Amino acid sequence: MKRLNVPIIFAAMLFSSHSLADTFTATQECPYAQRIKQLSNSNLSTLDVGTTYQTLTYNNAAKDFVRIRIDGVGDKWTKTDCGTVKENDTVKTRGDGAKPPKSKKYSRSDNKHVAGQFDYYKLALSYSPEFCLVKGKNQPQCSREWIVHGLWPQYNKGYPGNCDVPPNMVDSINKKEIFAFMPSDYLISHEWKKHGTCSGLSRSEYYDFTGQLWDSLSLPDLSSGKFSQDEIRQAVIDKNPRLEANMIELACDEGSGPKNTLDEIRICFSKEGIAEACTEMERSCGKNVKVRAL
């Protein structure tokens, strides 16, 4: 397992110029313009969903708008929450003093499961000892304590699933690289169909982004016993000081094992890959949670 520190960004750095490695992948058909105040005009050209652009700069520390380079058009401004930002090949946590990105609030009631139309992500991390005690110790993930279950687009209430995507979005992927965090052919196929199709990213971009979030975290080695939810969350925070308790969801009783056993930890991220508070939490764990070992 990779044991990397969560990257730290200082607010003063958030609106500086960036290197050629910085990219912005459009997840919505938002307008772009030469000046920010022109973005409210009608009949503007829009971003191509799934297209990756070079990022140049942001308008302020809150990163409300990003300036991107569009081939054949030039350098333009667009809203940052209209896509996914990848900076220097790492996924960033929010800097001190920066405000959360502004986002349309979607829900199942007003949305028809359209790719790219969601509010934030949950990165679901499966605790392998519990999974393997229930499913059998010959499962591919049983040699590791944690794997990625999936990266799930979320509405502020509910979530989309099985979104329609054009054939060109189902591009080739490098399974050898994906197996480093998701060692299951079935899971790779299932998670793309149910969740990845709603991300607004191509299949390869979706798994690249999932891998970046995985690499940005350092996960705790848990001992067996009973622990409070606060104790488990604090074990995660101790490894990742930039996280806060309201960014971490615990999931219990996902399988057929004993009641109130830890199955997963889920961490919430903005579309840009910045850790943020979850707006909706699963309540499947009791006050004290069992952690089992193989």
Rank of each mutant, 00 (worst) to 15 (best):
residue 25 T to M: 06
residue 26 A to W: 02
residue 28 Q to C: 09
residue 32 Y to K: 11
residue 33 A to R: 11
residue 33 A to F: 03
residue 34 Q to W: 01
residue 36 I to L: 05
residue 38 Q to R: 11
residue 43 N to R: 04
residue 43 N to M: 09
residue 43 N to W: 01
residue 44 L to G: 05
residue 45 S to G: 10
residue 47 L to E: 04
residue 48 D to C: 07
residue 53 Y to I: 05
residue 67 R to Y: 03
residue 74 G to M: 03
residue 76 K to G: 05
residue 77 W to H: 07
residue 82 C to Q: 06
residue 94 R to C: 07
residue 96 D to L: 13
residue 100 P to T: 01
residue 100 P to S: 01
residue 101 P to N: 10
residue 104 K to F: 05
residue 107 S to Y: 02
residue 113 H to T: 12
residue 120 Y to N: 10
residue 123 L to G: 11
residue 131 F to Y: 06
residue 134 V to N: 12
residue 138 N to Y: 00
residue 143 S to Q: 08
residue 147 I to H: 05
residue 147 I to Q: 07
residue 151 L to F: 04
residue 157 K to L: 05
residue 163 C to I: 04
residue 174 N to T: 03
residue 184 S to I: 00
residue 184 S to D: 09
residue 186 Y to R: 13
residue 191 E to R: 00
residue 192 W to H: 07
residue 194 K to I: 02
residue 194 K to R: 13
residue 201 L to W: 06
residue 204 S to N: 10
residue 204 S to K: 10
residue 207 Y to H: 09
residue 208 D to A: 11
residue 208 D to M: 09
residue 210 T to H: 06
residue 219 L to R: 12
residue 221 D to F: 06
residue 225 G to T: 11
residue 233 R to Q: 14
residue 251 A to E: 13
residue 253 D to Q: 14
residue 253 D to K: 11
residue 254 E to H: 07
residue 273 G to K: 04
residue 275 A to R: 02
residue 276 E to Y: 00
residue 277 A to H: 12
residue 281 M to W: 02
residue 284 S to T: 15
residue 293 A to Q: 13
residue 294 L to E: 14
